[in-house]
Amino acid sequence: MGTREQGAPWPRQAASPGAAAGTPSLLALDAVDAFYDRSHVLQALSMEVESGTVVALLGRNGAGKTTTLKTVMGIVPVRAGRMRFDGADVTGLPTHRIARLGIAYVPEDRGIFASLTVHEHLTLANVPDGWPLGRIYEAFPRLAERRGHRGTQLSGGEQQMLSIARALTLAPRLLILDEPTEGLAPVIVEEIAAIAGRLKAEGLTMLLVEQNYPFAARIADRVYVLGKGRIRWHGAPAALDADEEVKHTWLGI
């Protein structure tokens, strides 16, 4: 079932089906305004990510998808509205404290450090209950082979693997992925999809931005469609698939 948005934030009851059922969402944005320049604006944005689900943010270029993720990470400041994580108000917290609460971020540019080795990337966060190195190298054998290589010596696919693996060392309760398949060869996209599928099966909550609609539709439990800094539609991927108008107007498909 999909719900159309009329620009203004929807009534809270309707926006939080989880709350109605007694399961509070892991992440909740409530009427958040944010901007860092004129072309990156969010207006009264409300959305929820329930524990154990995968939520995809879809929309055209410049719709505000990356800005939303950066706002959640505290990289872009919240100008109005509230943001809650696991019931606690996290509005205005600095990025490193948000990360320590268990939100891990895989940015669009992958955020790989040029002068650090693969091994250093994976030991930098130093979070006690994060994935241990052995488990990381088991899940990402390519990284084990390249543990002594520096960031710049890795291929695009390897950088993406490293960025995801590094996020897992933070023991995340919410994994944020910004366009994890962008610019990667189809065979690598398949690998990333397999990894994302396995993480989902383990019950990891994820919030992802994707231009690759089939990829998003395959993994997401719930979809938010963003347009011009506002939520325009939300619901199940199957419902979106059936809604030609929303797809045409806000996604250009």
């Binding site: 990470m73 990289i75 600095p94 990025t95 490193h96 404290r97 990360a99 320590r100 891990a104 971020y105 940015p107 955020g111 450090f113 040029a114 002068s115 650090l116 250093e120 930098l124 966060a125 979070v127 960031g151 590094r166 933070l170």
Partner: peptide, 13 residues
């Protein structure tokens, strides 16, 4: 890492 990309360092807690 901070010289390379300090926002990403913060995002690692």
């Amino acid at each position: 890492a901070g010289v390379d990309d300090r926002t990403m360092v913060a995002a690692l807690g």
